[in-house]
Computed example of a mutant assay.
Amino acid sequence: MQQLIDLFDQHGPLLVFINILLEQLGVPLPAIPGLLVAGALSADGRLYWPTVLILAVLASGMANFVWFLAGRRFGIRILALMCRISISPDSCVSRTSNAFTRWGAASLLVARFIPGLSSVASPLAGAMGLPAGRFVLFDTLGTTIWAGSAIAAGALLHRQVDAVITALESIGSLALLVIVSLFALYITYRWLERQTLLRFVRKHRIDVVELRRLFDKGQAPLIVDVRSASLREGDPRRIPGALEMELEEVRHMLADVPKDREIVFYCSCPNEASAAKATRLLQQQGYTKVRPLIGGLDAWLAEHPQADAANDDGQPLNHPA
């Protein structure tokens, strides 16, 4: 542990740069502890905080611009990759797109403060067509606020940070074991939470073949698109006749639908997370024939590449390039 502290004392700004760059590229290495330690060392006169801040903003900006360009190039599809990197893959699409819908570019100012959103906000900004200059401006401001706050907190609490470091030094390698164990417990909790959702989806799901069969028999269920508004704007294709609503609107917008009516929810998020949540919500309200579409919109489009996505008058939409 002492060797690690000495290394940080000598090369703190560089370590912060590498840590933030890797974190923003998708490696699960939290950057806040390093910024707190850098702030504490700056308060003790052992580091120059402006250098740390500049390198933090530079590292974040480099990684975020790479993801921004990926979002510009691949569109909404890049979010599937990003959300598999995220610790909370099943909810990061909807949460990030909802934030972007409400606040636009200003969401980049707060994205770094919200776990699970910071790495996804940049590709979403690119996918939604935010101008590059505007992205760089808001991303830089947001990162400066975030990193500056962490450094300032470390400086203000430098005595407490020093006490924690001293305590960690006293227990040596056991400290690293405790930290790794806590992180492993958190990952395990998230994994178990995700498995619960997956079991629910497998138990109640409907696939595109069965849904197509219901269409052909003239027994089409009520189909509901629960993608966020920004995701629908980025990809306007949909299943013919689908109603569009936010996940938060499901409860009251479907309140007048008979509880024995067959309803199918779909989204474009990993593991059909939003569709599964909507299904569970209505089941808790007493609805008996509610199911998520396995594979979501992507599965439907794969089976029906020409006649699947339609606008309100039933005419096929052109697939975006």
Rank of each mutant, 00 (worst) to 15 (best):
C267S: 13
H252V: 12
L197K: 11
E272S: 14
D216S: 10
L197G: 08
I263T: 04
Y266A: 04
K277L: 12
E262D: 14
E248I: 07
M245R: 06
V209T: 15
V250P: 02
V257I: 15
V264G: 02
Q283N: 08
L254C: 01
R280T: 03
R280N: 13
E193A: 15
E249A: 15
F215K: 01
A229I: 13
I263F: 04
R280E: 15
E233I: 06
P258T: 11
R232I: 02
F215W: 05
S274N: 13
E248G: 10
L197W: 11
L254R: 07
R280V: 07
H252T: 13
L281N: 05
R194Y: 11
R205M: 12
Y266N: 02
V209Q: 11
V224T: 01
A278T: 02
A276Y: 00
G218W: 05
K277R: 14
E244M: 13
R251Y: 09
R227T: 00
Q219C: 07
L197T: 06
M245N: 06
R205N: 09
P270S: 05
E244C: 10
A229P: 06
Q284V: 05
R227Q: 07
H252L: 09
F215A: 11
F265M: 10
E262R: 14
S268C: 05
D225S: 03
K277I: 14
E210I: 02
V209M: 08
C269N: 07
P258W: 09
L198M: 13
R202A: 15
P221T: 02
L211F: 09
E246C: 03
R238K: 14
G218T: 11
H252C: 12
A220Q: 11
E193W: 11
K277Q: 15
V208R: 01
K277W: 08
I263K: 09
L254T: 03
R237G: 09
V257S: 07
E248Y: 07
K277Y: 05
P270V: 03
Q284F: 02
Q283I: 08
Q219L: 10
N271Q: 13
R194C: 00
A242T: 03
S230V: 05
V224C: 02
I263E: 00
D207V: 02
F265I: 01
V201H: 00
R227W: 00
C269Y: 00
R227P: 04
R205S: 15
R261H: 14
A220H: 00
D225K: 03
I223L: 09
V226M: 05
A242G: 07
L222V: 12
Q284K: 15
L198A: 13
A273S: 15
V201L: 11
R205D: 06
L198E: 13
L211H: 07
L192I: 15
L231N: 06
P240M: 06
P270G: 01
K277E: 12
G241S: 08
L198Y: 08
D235I: 02
K277V: 12
T279R: 06
G241K: 09
Q285A: 14
A220S: 12
E210W: 02
L243R: 15
E262W: 08
M253F: 11
K259H: 12
L197D: 07
R280Y: 10
F200D: 08
K277C: 03
A255V: 11
D256R: 14
D235K: 08
A220K: 07
D225L: 06
K217C: 07
I223H: 04
L197C: 07
L231W: 06
C267F: 00
P258C: 09
E233V: 03
A276W: 01
T196A: 14
Q285V: 12
